[in-house]
């Protein structure tokens, strides 16, 4: 009988290993898992070409809308104008809700109103476009949760392009008493800030016009 098979030898070796603190696997196996890539979502807000149209009849009596250049158009009582600002958003991601804010720099002229549309992407208001908010220029607007309730339910990995169109309408009736015999100026169309953001907290305490879709 050899020395190695001696029970006293085995016990001594085990005691030595435990005293040294090493792991002693009676049985071991291993598998390697590849790194999981977590794809980031995306939100992007971009501008596109603005335009404005005259809706009132021209000197020849034609009332079809015609594009105008701000450089040489002279507003007078009796005119009707549309100023269109197109807004483009891109959204992609799970658990993503979007809020769009329109914040005016100042209250507009009494003749100015605005309407915010969803746009089919052509940059102009068509019959298929849906008005989602509006009022006198100067009224801030916040729109949340476009499309089907929570965006997360429908968007997923698919990138969605959101098209809005903000139309400012200026119109006044012709009144000879309103003609200007002094060298005055027409009121500016006020500026505004467009902000698109991701949100998870229900909107509250907001003082403008709030639209949830």
């Amino acid at each position: 009988m050899g020395m190695r098979n001696h029970p006293g030898f085995i016990a001594a070796a085990l005691a030595t290993t435990l005293a040294a603190g090493a792991t002693f696997a009676l049985l071991s196996d291993s598998a390697t898992s590849g790194a999981e890539a977590i794809k980031a979502g995306n939100l992007l807000l971009t501008r596109c070409t603005d335009s404005w149209m005259e809706l009132s009849a021209d000197a020849d009596g034609v009332s079809a809308a015609s594009p105008q250049s701000p450089a040489d158009f002279l507003y007078q009582p009796g005119d009707a104008l549309d100023f269109d600002y197109c807004i483009r958003g891109t959204a992609q991601g799970d658990n993503l809700a979007v809020v769009l804010d329109i914040e005016w720099d100042e209250v507009g002229d009494a003749d100015d109103t605005f309407t915010l549309y969803t746009d089919q992407g052509d940059g102009t208001v068509s019959a298929a476009d849906v008005p989602i908010a509006g009022g006198p220029v100067g009224t801030d607007v916040r729109v949340t949760e476009f499309e089907d309730q929570r965006l997360a339910a429908t968007w997923g990995d698919e990138q969605r392009n959101i098209h809005w169109l903000l139309r400012i309408h200026r119109e006044s009736a012709f009144d000879p008493a309103e003609l200007d015999y002094e060298d005055a100026e027409s009121p500016d169309v006020p500026g505004f800030t467009v902000r698109m953001g991701q949100t998870r907290v229900p909107v509250s305490g907001y003082t403008g016009t709030e639209v949830a879709r």
Binding site: D50, P70, L74, Y75, S186, V189, P190
Partner: peptide
């Protein structure tokens, strides 16, 4: 993300 649209002046007839 946000951007600002500046006020637009409108010509005025006399």
């Amino acid at each position: 993300q946000e951007y600002a649209i500046s006020a637009r002046s409108v010509g005025h007839g006399q």
